[in-house]
Write a protein that binds this DNA or RNA. Structure first.
Lengths: 204, 204
DNA sequence: AGAAAACACTAACGACTGTTAGCCATAACT
DNA sequence: AGTTATGGCTAACAGTCGTTAGTGTTTTCT
């Protein structure tokens, strides 16, 4: 009964098949990225949504609820993908490549969300902050386990797995500082260039 | 005459051979990193310095002056190092290794400053913002030129130079998200692990 | 048609922001 | 010893912050 109620709500408000809450979060994600969570004000956000600041609270509960929604949406999406890769029967190198490609695509297709999840999680209130950091730590641990498994099996070079995870994740999250200056580069080219470097390195 | 005046000033105020302005900037750097520039208040900062908020303005001109000082200090230091490497007569691979090692050491030794320069430059007011971005663009361009030079000479693998710069710089700046969780790792180990990956890649 | 729910509005609260004015003590220089 | 500059302090300004209360209007359901 409750879920039916919610569904009806969504239909009522929809423009382009999206709830007003979704519109708010979408606009907020751009704003949070541009100005940072702390510097983006609810009045700013309201203006972009086309409404007065107070009216936002008919759809959301607080400013930080928006941040929570974004951060955990991204975290869950990555976690789900990781589980699929873990369950698959590919070689270690293929697994890593799949994960890298997934990250790059998420970065390109859901840029605002991923950026915020990467850079603004500090402003999450407890207990969400601890929750988020636990998820992140777990994610990285499992990634490192895949790499370590690969080195013990001799499938990939013997390298410190934590360092490898650090390099890979950081490199991808750094795409943000790039995409403005090199719009000409297509997504596919960027993806294959990055995969090439991250797999094969610089040395000839 | 003016410079003598300034020198005397520095001696007067010094605790541990540092001006009070330097103390303020040092404390501010930790605060800006922990809370972000926007969320860190002058009253917060004043408390850490052991003084009332208004008293800070006897030593600095504004909050953003602190940010400017930090950002350009870091930028200049990297730029100076780059010029030295460019002028040297090493192989491309050695040049890149030197730059990578320098970045890692700066990250470990001047963590707060480098972090802020990496993450909080958005809050620089004009015209400093444009200035900073120009310097950064120039730095990356020259780094890419070194790599490109190496590929045409056949000294390193044929890889998109811009992608390589992106991967290298991002990987290093990602050390921040690591150092808390892996304090056990020594600086030397981290450095050699990262260099190994960034030079040799993952593939066996 | 009438009841109810959804949602936008204005006004305002209390807390907090960076910063300035002005005052007073101490320390340095002549 | 007397003048001056340094650098603390309190108080305050003008503005912004997230958020709530209360009201009115529109839309949906019965």
């Amino acid at each position: 009964m409750f879920s039916i109620f919610v569904t009806v709500m969504a239909k009522i408000q929809g423009k382009r098949n999206s709830t007003k809450k979704e519109v708010i979060i979408e606009k907020a994600s751009r704003l949070f990225r541009e100005k940072g969570f702390g510097a983006a004000s609810m009045r700013d956000l309201a203006e972009h949504v086309g409404v007065e600041a107070a009216s936002l609270y008919n759809h959301i509960q607080s400013k930080s609820e928006i941040l929570q929604t974004i951060c955990f949406k991204v975290a869950n999406e990555f976690m789900t993908n990781l589980e699929a890769v873990e369950a698959s029967n590919q070689s270690t190198l293929k697994k890593m490549e799949a994960i890298i490609r997934r990250h790059i695509r998420m970065m390109l297709e859901q840029y605002e969300y991923v950026y915020i999840s990467d850079h603004e999680w500090r402003h999450l209130p407890e207990p969400y902050l601890s929750n988020f950091l636990n998820q992140r730590r777990s994610y990285r641990k499992r990634l490192a386990d895949i790499i370590e498994d690969g080195t013990t099996k001799g499938e990939i070079k013997a390298i410190d797995p934590y360092t490898a995870v650090l390099v890979i994740l950081s490199a991808i999250s750094g795409i943000d500082s790039w995409q403005r200056s090199r719009k000409s580069t297509t997504a596919e080219a960027l993806e294959s260039n990055m995969v090439k470097y991250l797999i094969e390195g610089l040395k000839k």
